[in-house]
Amino acid sequence: MAGTETKQNGSAAVVVLSRVPAEELSESLRAQHDALSAALGGAGIAFRVVDSVYDQYEDDADVKALRAHAGDLVFLGWHFPRATKWILARQGLEVNGATRKLHCIDARELKAEQVVLKVRDILKGAASAEVVAIRKEPPADGLTPRQRGELAEAALPNPENAELSARWYPVVDYDACTNCMECLDFCLFGVYGVDPAGTLRVVQQDECRTDCPACSRVCPVGAIVFPKYKTNRSIAGGEDDGDRGSLKLDLSKIFGKPKARHQAALERDRELLKAGRKPASAEKIEKLAEEFDQTDL
């Protein structure tokens, strides 16, 4: 279903339009997708349509094709641009400007005609939609894991070569991550691990619990993104609350929102219970009791 591609001459940019992830496909997003497709075509801009990159595995066709393309990318997706950037990184694309420019546009936020104007300006070199790092202060050693020479994060192959289905897992923003391992300590489902170079990795992405954003709340620098999370823009990779006029009032504090860490622990307990395990607080108490029993008094 791919549209025609642009000329493959060195830095030629490819415009990529993502399909809307299946479980988010509302009438309005479907209409927006179709309008975008028509508007790009009408403006004579070549583009390629791909399935939701977040939901694909690293050996799926669209992901392979994107990885094989060496030039700039203009990616029109249905997540916040920062989420899109790090989804692509997870799928093995170079995203930090070393070999290509990556422009990410959130197709939910603009009218189709506005997107087309922006894409045209980007292709002319008159505009940019590159994702700027959110980090305000450098980490202790001044380097992010990526800058320490790490390559793109390795996604996993599709275990059963299954059909594309809705997935849920964290993507790490390595522009922000300080490799502090808070998330690895916190998650009790084994989602996080460390590679031989000592860098934090999402190693068992499909162990992640659907709709649970708890580890994102314990990250001290907001580097963990759940692109499909609905109720908190910054967890979904958007800008911090309070940044935009378009933002809805978040009344969660009034309705008893606990401090982030406490809330994360509650969410984790809920997922442990659902998985037939004991809440972490209970596990800890039992372990202490056991140790106490073993001490010879």
């Binding site: 009344l251 309705f255 929102k257 509650l266």
Partner: peptide
């Protein structure tokens, strides 16, 4: 949008889901 189901044991302040109006949204506990 409830994230919980009838029959679940809930602790005090357990997250329940979200509520959204045209001008505001909130998680409920």
């Amino acid at each position: 949008d409830w994230a919980v189901q009838a029959g679940e044991d809930l602790g005090e302040a357990a997250p329940l889901g979200t509520i959204e109006s045209h001008k505001a949204c909130s998680e409920l506990y």
